[in-house]
Design a protein around this nucleic acid. Sequence first.
DNA 1: TTTAAAAATTAGGTATACCTAAAATAGGAG
DNA 2: CTCCTATTTTAGGTATACCTAATTTTTAAA
Lengths: 225, 225
Amino acid sequence: MTPHKEDYLKALYELGGSEHLVSNKQIADLLKIAPASVSEMLGKMSREGLIQYEPYKGSRLTQSGLQLAISLVRGHQLWEVFLIRHLGYSWSESHEDAEMLEHITPPRLAARLDRFLNYPAYCPHGNVIPKADGQVENAALEPLKDLSVGEKSKIRRVDEERELLDYLESLGIEIGSPVAVLAIAPYEGPLTLDLDGRNVQISYKAACQIYVDQIHDPDTNNTIF
Amino acid sequence: MTPHKEDYLKALYELGGSEHLVSNKQIADLLKIAPASVSEMLGKMSREGLIQYEPYKGSRLTQSGLQLAISLVRGHQLWEVFLIRHLGYSWSESHEDAEMLEHITPPRLAARLDRFLNYPAYCPHGNVIPKADGQVENAALEPLKDLSVGEKSKIRRVDEERELLDYLESLGIEIGSPVAVLAIAPYEGPLTLDLDGRNVQISYKAACQIYVDQIHDPDTNNTIF
DNA sequence: TTTAAAAATTAGGTATACCTAAAATAGGAG
DNA sequence: CTCCTATTTTAGGTATACCTAATTTTTAAA
């Protein structure tokens, strides 16, 4: 395992490679690497049994590749909790440094860090932290942009991207905050929110990368739509 | 900076490259790399201004190389303190994992870790932890093997080598323990110690890698010898 | 169903960092 | 001061992981 291959595994995992085929282009875009290099690396990883690779179609994680990807994510999230809780990091800073630390976090270290942090269930950005055995249970969430005006919910997760994180932190948006949409401007215009009593405007783009509890129909208890 | 170059910098530092020329062979032996590869890498590092390289003679750290080496050592020691104090690592385990963590510890992270740990002066093995500005003040120590029978001292530092650390930990040897030599068997035989009241035998080899306070002549206050 | 655009692969090239084997240099013993 | 051994360097080769440019395959539109 090299840090490079680990990056490919994580990319594949984040692009849904545990469930369906992922195109080379998606990986190339995410990792900012030339498509030719991706083909080459995927061929190698396929020979190593980390992925299932169908040339010209795409690739998906094998069982062993998935295990590795999950343990990387686990390391990443645990470090984020540590950096924010104990070292005073910001959202974006913690993501940056965890991106490096995850590559040198063998299971022993992850296990001890997990215990030290008292087995956190979520990372500071709201992602579920996989357990040591690779178990992940994801809550059903929907993007804030899909909330209708007037609906109340709670902020549960935000995408881990440096610029977004800095933007959200500057707006004082936090995981767990109660939120309601007061207005949605047309043509991908900004959303006006009631954020725990405060009046806040956020861009449409940000509203696509913030996730909230799904609203349930109180009568049927089924998801609306 | 690559982890590889960082290893060379650290090796050079540990071999005294901040004070005098270090031979390629010493570096090759320490890093377990072929001498030819060392020549090649040192050439490159010299061109980058990290070291002063005199072909066939040896090399020493430049000011900038020394700074980098010291910040690596600083990261290493800080992580050791964290791993032992908060994650329940053993002496040898902490050294192992710190060896990897040091390579991804930019000054920002080191500074925050330092604060979290309350600015420790020593690593768990007794090494002085360099300050953020690169300042290091080393106490005058002597190897335990040079203590005469009957002399009393305190254990201050041990070399960071996996096998040694496991051996010493199994013997219950700790930094700060009062120690006196009860007997020294001839021909590099074992030493019998009074270790804080307990009777302990250690190998001569180990006694070369354990360092204690220098004993001073009470009249002149000068170092004996 | 042909065709054009998009995506993927292959071919050929770069840089890093290692290796072994052969040649060059240095330093101490006689 | 020469010679022998240590050490060091050079030469040539490997593997990783990236690149660009050219070719092939796929997909979707006319």
